[in-house]
Nucleic acid binder design. Structure first.
Lengths: 163, 163
DNA sequence: ATTAACACGGATGATATCTATCCGCAATGC
DNA sequence: GCATTGCGGATAGATATCATCCGTGTTAAT
């Protein structure tokens, strides 16, 4: 069981887009450059975020991506579901209906207790992710992972990269 | 992101083993038969459960598997970790250290806020799974998925399969 | 002692998913 | 027009999951 790397990329880059001045945007190429990621592949993920309504994309020579809504309104769950899809991690295959003591359709009126438990666990997981927004990430990262020099380098890079 | 089918199989079959009379056991072949699963592949998972101390295995002509501890002491988390391994689903690749504004080692003193959030979500997921035991599953399944006929068929099958 | 039944681990292959790249198309601003 | 960019499809390689087979060691019954 593993979450794809694309989720990590997407959250990081939503954080970057969250500090871009209103009305400006960054291209897929620039976003890839920022964390040295494979540009074409990252583009796929950005397109998924766009389809999910998390980013707004603009085509053409002055195009690029920006957040489709305020950073405080985008949760880690939103991003995760956009990249990974919304199917649950646990997929009940109803094996209770197989074998010599197979449950009859009538006996399967209730959802399997095992599936139930895993679904509940996944709900907890989703709740936790839904409680953290891109704005939260930006705030924490700004105070914990950006010293003076990096903050300056970031601003310089942004000013040059933004369109 | 998906949990392997083996987890579902393992929980179901731990439930079966949980109602076997003390001192008796079931072979991998019998367990596979019960839910019509690929016997050889299931065997791999049973071996993993054995290595994890969830099942006790006995070799030889009258061998087989039984629960290594009471059903109330085996959680869904125990089983999941035994099958899936204990690595977290979210693997931080520290991309903040890459690119033109890479964070210095000093700035990475704190864990990345993103990794932190995903780890916390995963902790919630684990908590939920740790709060459900095989005994709970047996109890719920018995009352919800076993009508009179199936209960009887199950007892008959067990009496014949057990050793 | 021989035999049959069983768990165990390694090796191997098939299938699916993830990662990555490339291409043509459509849209946009100069 | 023309360069730049997002978009989706096609493709291929890498990795993980699913599945099978085989030799070995162990056990109990004959």
């Amino acid at each position: 069981m593993r979450i794809s790397e694309g989720v990590e990329w997407a959250v990081h880059l939503c954080g970057v887009l969250g500090v871009v001045r209103d009305g400006y945007s960054l291209t897929a190429g620039r976003l890839a450059e920022f964390h040295d990621l494979p540009s074409d592949y990252l583009a796929k993920h950005l397109q998924a975020l766009s389809r999910a309504g998390i980013l707004t994309a603009n085509r053409g020579v002055s195009g690029g991506y920006r957040l489709a809504k305020p950073a405080r309104s985008i949760t880690l769950l939103d991003i995760t579901l956009a990249i990974e899809g919304s199917e649950p991690a646990f997929r009940c295959t109803e094996i209770r209906r197989q074998g010599p003591c197979a449950a009859t359709p009538a006996a399967c009126k209730h959802i399997c207790a095992i599936a139930q438990a895993f679904m509940l666990a996944e709900t907890q997981w989703r709740k936790a992710l839904a409680s953290v927004t891109v704005a939260d990430i930006i705030r924490t990262a700004a105070s914990e992972s950006f010293d003076r020099a990096r903050r300056q380098a970031f601003q310089d890079w942004l000013n040059n990269a933004v369109k």
